[in-house]
Design a protein around this nucleic acid. Structure first.
Lengths: 229, 229
DNA sequence: TTGCATTTTTCGGCGTGCCTAAAATATACT
DNA sequence: AGTATATTTTAGGCACGCCGAAAAATGCAA
């Protein structure tokens, strides 16, 4: 006996974080498992199961016991709104307040839960209704549509094929800062000029400058082939 | 056995709200009573007492049983930081994002708890380190200094003495909107041209326009005598 | 296919922040 | 001062989000 029979209930921060984590993990994993969620949310597996059952009851996710979890359309709507808020806030902090693009994640992590739909809208307007955030992640439309692009990890880019950095996967500030020092920021022109075998380092021309990076790091740099942005 | 032995502990939203409420009530009442706090926080008196005891244990307030509550210097530091955040956010929403000054309170109420000190600083810079928010409330400095002004309620202003609206006490959007319709906004030039006896309505010249308002409403409009603002 | 390691779930518990009902204290009145 | 009224505190309870320990299910390997 409770809430939420049509639309727009207010959800707790814990619930919003959970749904967001499922959404993000779902992009790479068909079934989102308890252990992954526990890891992503920094809570224990028992807590994860508990929340999963609760959200399944509320029809925000489906939970197949011992198998994993998926968002329902309703759950996805909620998750996407949070993701939209997050990415709008990141971009806003960078553009309007001069933050570094490597220092906005934690701030957005808190703000995403408390801004009103109205404020999100005003921020979007201020920014000119952008489609991507400073990391190259797509910003969902107010209606929840997400513009996905086919991108190639730098580690998988063919030799001597020029490309443009379109997205950086990891959120950790240190990695972002490291990549930034190498010139690997969204919009940079890149071309792989040498690849060592056995997952060795690659040599990459970054805006004219040759750089050597590990292949594991290169996996986080997503490149578009022609113009893309 | 717990937290907080030197500075900057993170406090829950409930605690921050409580301390803020004490701070605001303290300006008008020497001893802040349980019932006032319960009213201000929309919680019951027992919950208020409970929180009071907890915060007294943490040395954020002093609590004299059955008498009331006061902030300690530590508690005041926390409260002032929240108040500063609140007022900076209100002003920022108005100035940077075009919100109406009567619609920013609720938004700030949520944001005040989650912005980092760093973000507050950037917002302050963006705004040119302002001393007052859109309602004329003083914005504490980062160090916690509050610029207090001696102001007169419009209801107590002497006949035919020109003044300038410097501050509007109430936060309720409907009242702010009502006052706005009468031209009673911060910065407006006012002069009382008639007062009915027995707490009756007053007739006020507002930027040249004659307006009639109730004395209870006039109590919320604070006026500075000469230039102030 | 049986047994073992891993993953997931169940179970019992805990702190926070809130509540209602009842008891204690303060205050106001005559 | 003595009693009625209003305020405050105590007592007992509840939902939420989390935990650790133990049980159950899964899946991998011999």
């Amino acid at each position: 006996m409770d809430d939420n029979f049509l639309s727009q209930t207010a959800h707790s921060e814990a619930i919003e974080d959970f749904l967001k984590a499922v959404y993000l993990l779902q992009q790479e994993h068909a079934r989102v498992q308890t252990s992954m969620l526990a890891e992503a949310l920094s809570i224990t597996p028992p807590s994860t199961t508990e929340m999963a059952k609760k959200l399944a009851r509320a029809n925000l996710i489906t939970h197949e016991l011992y198998k994993g979890v998926r968002l329902t359309p309703t759950g996805e709507r909620v998750a996407i709104e949070i993701v939209r808020n997050h990415r709008l806030i990141e971009l806003f902090l960078v553009q309007a307040l001069g933050f570094g693009w490597d220092e906005v994640h934690r701030e957005a992590e808190r703000l995403e839960h408390v801004i009103s739909e109205q404020l999100a809208e005003r921020i979007a307007q201020y920014l000119g209704n952008p489609h991507f955030d400073p990391h190259g992640d797509p910003i969902p439309s107010p209606e929840g549509d997400v513009e996905e692009r086919a991108l190639t990890p730098l580690s998988a880019l063919a030799l001597h094929t020029p490309g443009i950095v379109a997205r950086l996967r990891d959120q950790a500030p240190d990695m972002l800062r490291y990549l930034g020092e190498k010139g690997l920021v969204v919009g940079a022109h890149v071309e792989v000029i040498a690849i060592d075998p056995f997952e060795g380092p690659l040599t990459v021309q970054v805006d004219g400058q040759a750089q050597v990076i590990g292949s594991n790091v290169a996996h986080y740099v997503l490149v578009s082939h022609s113009k893309g942005m």
